[in-house]
Design a protein around this nucleic acid. Structure first.
Lengths: 154, 154
DNA sequence: CTTGAAAAGAACTGCCT
DNA sequence: AGGCAGTTCTTTTCAAG
């Protein structure tokens, strides 16, 4: 865990919105010179605050119009059960996110499909056949808003 | 919705892992020349397949060690109820994601906090006071795996 | 599609306040 | 910590096959 000043937080917030910004552009928007912004970037990366950069793909455009969140309970909850389950779920390409959680569910999955018929196929042939799967709850995504998170207050 | 060939899919998969790759590096890893890879990138962006680039922040390192998923049902479900709720939830910095869903819940929130005590504060003072909030279910994140999604199968 | 090269811009270094 | 000036490298763009 590291300490950030307000300038660092501004840098991270700006990069969160658009990671294509370089040290020069960042410096201009913050009133810093290019090398000064560059040195802060280096430090933030060395400290591990920035893990990497990813493209945000537009799944709608790519033909995947349906996103469904599944909440799963396992019937068998031993250590082997978890490992078997995780190995099997990792082999399903339509699963975008696997979250191991504590609470009402054991696992939460984010699943994308081309349409509802495609999703039904994934659900019946892939999800329901996972080892140890018990109860399955589903929520269909209507719209989603992603926000920069608590860096503003930090 | 657009058509992709296998090379396009490879490009998107590579960028999903590391968006810092430029046209040159992409071309080398795919057996294309730098201008050829560059033109494909341009096309993919023009078609809207690539929405943008984001940094992946390491929330642990930044001091936010607790992530909780909330499933919410609203007590009042009219149009005004939804708008009031969305406006209010957008003002909570600890809320990273707001998903409007169809199913067991009306909304799903991803909430980050420094620790469980901090999370309790957010839950009591911010979440439970949201307009129209009914039932609230919680799941605490233990571990998470993100995967490239269904681009491999196309 | 390729290679090659020129122009532009970004990244990085050293030295100074 | 930040700024300035200069060097090096990559990306971008164009020409030609």
């Amino acid at each position: 865990m590291i300490e950030l000043d307000e300038t660092d937080r501004r840098i991270l917030r700006a990069l969160w919105q658009d990671a294509t910004l370089g040290a020069g552009a960042l410096g201009r928007s913050l009133g810093l010179s290019q090398p000064a912004a560059w040195r802060r970037l280096q430090r933030l990366r060395a400290q591990g605050a920035i893990r990497g950069r990813q493209v945000a793909l537009d799944l709608e455009t790519l033909g995947f119009g349906v996103t469904v969140f599944l909440g799963l309970r396992l019937a068998t909850r031993g250590r082997l059960g978890l490992e078997d389950f995780e190995r099997a779920v990792s082999a399903i390409p339509e699963v975008q996110t696997v979250e191991h959680v504590l609470g009402l569910y054991d696992y939460r999955l984010r699943v994308v499909a081309r349409d509802l018929a495609d999703f039904e196929r994934v659900l019946r042939r892939r999800i329901m056949t996972l080892p140890g799967v018990g109860q399955v709850d589903a929520n269909v995504l209507l719209s989603e808003e992603r926000r920069p998170g608590p860096l503003g207050t930090g």
